[in-house]
């Protein structure tokens, strides 16, 4: 792991989001460095997914700033954020179930294509060429991730098995070669074997040069893949550091692990 000499890929400054009287995220400062895998963990309701939604533009911050590659992206619409180079997956799968596997990945490539009504209707050679390139990219992304998915490219996405749907969502996020990949609980609903496989896959994606921001409940996965961890509780950062440091942090044990231990 390279030392963090470069400016951060993503940085939040006093990022807050309130829903009515509830502060989902309050004064959050953290950064994702180029080339690292950073995990965001915390008990249920700690505000992890809210942070993802703020970064990806689903709703604007109440206050504070989000800087991506040094530029403010707070309050930008999701499609602008994606075009800047941030992709994400969802905690609950949100595939386009009625489209084919290949089409789902192609939609993920949309941010890299420029299309307009006239070009799409007349289909001049450059549009056709761009479309062929998109299909090639989509197929190679699927193949790199799972040859099995490629062989099922004409299947309806809704008909795939659960683990394949997870992979497809990942392919859809990766196809546009984002600078920052955000994964929201990618192993949710997987059995331990599948989760371990997924962990290897995350490592492989990281080896390809991706910077990854991960939300994960499975602490085995978190401790296994993360370079650094940020721990949230009630929308605030209570700890930050390497897996080793976080594991030994008393506030973390109390807020997260302790509570979890008593719950089980």
């Amino acid at each position: 792991m390279a030392e963090p000499v470069q400016p951060p890929m993503l940085e939040t400054r006093d990022l807050s989001r309130r829903f009515g009287g509830l502060t989902a995220v309050g004064g959050l400062n953290f950064e994702v460095r180029l080339g690292e895998i950073l995990s965001l963990i915390g008990p249920n309701g700690a505000g992890k997914t809210t942070v993802f939604n703020l970064i990806s533009g689903i709703y604007p911050p109440t206050s504070g700033e989000i800087l991506f590659q040094g530029q403010s992206i707070g309050g930008l619409k999701p499609d602008r954020v994606r075009r800047r180079g941030i992709s994400r997956t969802f905690q609950t799968l949100r595939l386009f179930d009625n489209m084919s596997v290949l089409e789902n990945v192609l939609v993920g490539y949309h941010s890299r294509l420029r299309s307009n009504l006239i070009g799409d209707m007349i289909k001049p050679p450059w549009v056709t060429r761009a479309e062929h390139e998109a299909v090639e990219r989509a197929r190679s992304t699927l193949e790199a991730l799972s040859p099995r998915l490629l062989s099922r490219q004409e299947f309806r996405a809704g008909d795939l098995a659960y683990a394949d749907r997870r992979l497809l969502e990942l392919a859809r996020a990766l196809v546009s070669e984002p600078s920052l990949l955000m994964l929201d609980e990618p192993t949710a609903g997987m059995n331990p074997t599948e989760a371990a496989e997924f962990m290897q896959r995350i490592n492989r994606i990281h080896a390809d040069g991706y910077t990854i921001l991960l939300i994960e409940h499975n602490l085995g996965v978190v401790m296994g893949v993360s370079h650094r961890i940020v721990v949230l509780d009630y929308g605030e950062k209570i700890a930050e550091g390497t897996p080793e440091e976080v594991r030994q942090d008393e506030r973390v044990i109390e807020a997260y692990l302790g509570r979890k231990a008593t719950a089980t």
């Binding site: 619409k77 499609d79 954020v81 179930d97 489209m99 192609l106 949309h110 307009n116 799409d120």
Partner: peptide, 23 residues
């Protein structure tokens, strides 16, 4: 077409579509 695909995506899940870079 690409626009048609985007239309179907928006029809199915507007928010997810917008996160795919679709305006």
């Amino acid at each position: 077409t690409n626009l048609g695909k985007a239309m179907r995506a928006v029809a199915q899940d507007r928010e997810a579509a917008s996160m795919m870079g679709i305006n």
